[in-house]
Design a protein around this nucleic acid. Structure first.
Lengths: 198, 198
DNA sequence: ACTGTCAATTGACACAGTGTAAAGTCACTA
DNA sequence: TAGTGACTTTACACTGTGTCAATTGACAGT
């Protein structure tokens, strides 16, 4: 692919991203993206098969630029489960606001579109892996609350830190992001970490 | 309104509801609803101003038929916070699968549509009130974990029991509804109920 | 029987959005 | 100078929402 073509592609991707963030992933048409990118609407279809394909490419692009997995890896050294948990929520909690718009768009189409679901899950694979590591670490340390099996704990952990829950607590309820991070850590520790009595 | 007109209206509402449940709230067009209801597409607009208005009327209709608030009231006698919590999750956890399709449709349009948001919140007002009662009861009994203020606890409680989280755990992760109810109770109690040491 | 009215149907249309197709432009390159 | 690649322009097919006007059929009251 020529560098000219790559430039246009990147212009489209950044314009899509920007519009998605502005509009929180709602009501962004191909015409608007084209206009924002300074290209014709048809150029979009020259680079991407469909609207969905553009969305998928955008989330991959954002993921590459923002590098969630790299941020997470910094904390994946062998450390205690609780420290791992804290680090995970710090990274993820600060990451969400940066990708909220496009994430919302992906989540909205995941129900109907297989490709969207796959793309989003692939971007989240590092985070999912981190959930497993945290629970495993807690279990190895004997700190995992015995009510949960490791599998159950991972699934619940993953559900708790979803973008939808972040949206509910911050956007809907007006919590600051610092509040979100603080309370989410507390919530997860209370749920999963066994406090030995006396 | 004549009873003939009311009959047609109900036919439309039940057809909408049925389609929403079948398709889990995704990709249901006015034409399909009309066909399912056995009326012309235009008849829908005779009874409802817009697609959104039909959705709002449907959720209100479902709420009326299913009577979540009535079910909840049965347990709102003055009892302990923990019993109240268990009862709440029993009722709500068994309610969600019955309204999942239309609930999903409402939640998907809430972001863009004010009327949808208002209608959904209005149907959920009884449940929200129940959250407040549970947290208040726990607080009065001195059982609320001191990490949370009552307001924070209510908001987190409300977030935890969201339809999105139910979907994640059951539809996506394959949990049975009984598993959902059991684990959600456990999760909420671990999060909010203070276990006195020794 | 006559008339009015109400509920619903039919068919047409405007509009927005996605996606396809073909012809044309323009710059760079062999 | 001919050719190629990236992009534009114009046009069109299709789906879905929402509006409008003319029409049918049934069921009143007189």
């Amino acid at each position: 692919m020529s560098s000219i073509k790559k430039d246009t592609r990147n212009k489209i991707l950044t314009a899509t991203w920007q519009l998605m963030e502005q509009r929180a992933g709602q009501g962004v048409s191909m015409s608007q993206i084209a206009k924002a990118a300074g290209v014709s609407r048809q150029a979009l279809y020259l680079h991407f098969d469909s609207r969905t394909a553009l969305m998928v490419a955008t989330i991959r692009y954002v993921d590459e630029v923002k590098g969630l997995n790299e941020r997470l890896k910094l904390f994946q050294q062998a450390r205690g489960g609780v420290e791992l948990l804290d680090a995970c929520i710090d990274v993820w909690g600060n990451y969400i606001p940066e990708i909220y718009g496009i994430a919302k768009a992906m989540i909205n189409t995941m129900d109907t579109d297989e490709a969207s679901a796959t793309a989003w899950n692939s971007c989240m694979s590092g985070l999912q892996e981190m959930c497993v590591q945290i629970i495993t670490a807690l279990q190895d340390e004997g700190k995992l609350v015995p009510s949960w099996s490791a599998e159950e704990a991972v699934v619940i952990f993953w559900t708790m830190i979803s973008v939808n829950n972040w949206q509910q607590l911050t956007v809907e309820c007006g919590w600051s992001n610092a509040q979100y991070i603080h309370h989410m850590k507390l919530l997860l520790k209370r749920t999963f970490v066994h406090q030995r009595c006396c």
